[in-house]
């Protein structure tokens, strides 16, 4: 979300690099030697059946779930080797939107957005108020939502508020866990547009877990599919459509996938400006 002085070197550098990751709970192994790259400036869609471990992978990259073995690098730094201070600095550079929103129930939406600012930045209350309201407006929430508590919001509003909080520190990388699940198709399409617009304007890298084929067609630059604890296919829609793996085939060329594959050309029309 930061505009660099010199435009990048042109080569797509890797922001998240996961190698040979093994994660398990008790006797149950969830990741069996998973490899994954997320490149700067892209929207990576991460798909996989329910319970395959998409959320677990996200949480492992975020350091919330311990890994058994393997290597995770974020912004070129090996997460096993960074000390607490560096880790804090790293965490400042990414924003997270959890599957259930995870808004602080005792704070209003505005205070939720300000919470990370308060912790990490030294800003005047006035600027914090203005920036929080700006973020709330950017994610398309009405202004009066700012002073509401999470329990007073609809499901879709919770998602937007969670996105606003994830964007609070102007992160370079955002993790979105199923941002459009539970939204109506129109709301979901709006949300897709929103993510894409934000990604373009603010230069975000987006790691997005999703089940939503529409989102995948609409905004994902690349897709990674998870099954049996590994990334079984990785690449553009074309790669996915030509994959021979049975699950990928069923997912992208099943009844719902086919319709989208036929109509996807008109869906690629760029989203309007903000």
């Amino acid at each position: 979300m930061v505009v660099e002085a010199a435009n990048g070197t042109g080569q797509a550098d890797v922001i998240i690099r996961v190698r040979d990751l093994v994660v398990g709970f008790g006797p149950k192994i969830i990741m069996r030697g998973l490899d994954l790259d997320v490149r700067r400036g892209e929207v990576l869609g991460f798909v996989g059946g329910s319970g395959q471990g998409k959320s677990v992978l996200t949480r492992t990259i975020l350091g919330l779930v311990p890994k058994r073995s393997g290597k995770i690098e974020v912004f070129g730094q090996d997460l096993d080797r960074v000390d607490a201070d560096d880790r804090r600095r790293l965490e400042r550079r990414y924003g997270v939107m959890f599957q259930q929103g995870a808004l602080f129930s005792g704070l209003t939406v505005k205070q939720n957005v300000q919470a990370p600012m308060r912790e990490h930045l030294k800003l005047s209350q006035r600027l914090m108020d203005e920036l929080a309201l700006l973020k709330i407006e950017l994610v398309g929430l009405p202004r009066d939502a700012a002073d509401k508590f999470p329990s007073e919001l609809s499901g879709g509003m919770i998602k937007r508020a969670a996105l606003a909080r994830a964007l609070a520190l102007d992160p370079e990388l955002v993790f979105l866990d199923e941002p459009t699940s539970g939204l109506d198709p129109i709301g979901a399409a709006e949300f897709d547009d929103l993510i894409q617009t934000l990604q373009r304007t603010l230069g975000l890298t987006v790691f997005m877990v999703t089940h939503d084929l529409d989102s995948i067609y609409a905004i994902c630059d690349r897709i990674a599919a998870l099954a049996e604890g590994k990334v079984i296919a990785e690449g553009t829609i074309q790669t996915m459509l030509s994959s021979q793996h049975p699950w990928v085939k069923a997912y992208f060329r099943g009844k719902r996938g086919r319709v989208l594959a036929l109509t996807r050309d008109d869906r690629h029309a760029p989203a309007g400006g903000l």
Binding site: V3, E4, L123, L127, L131, L134, L138, D170
Partner: peptide, 11 residues
């Protein structure tokens, strides 16, 4: 100006 984010743009 080197880098700029929404905070900078806003100010």
């Amino acid at each position: 100006v080197g880098r700029m984010d929404t905070g900078g743009a806003w100010l």
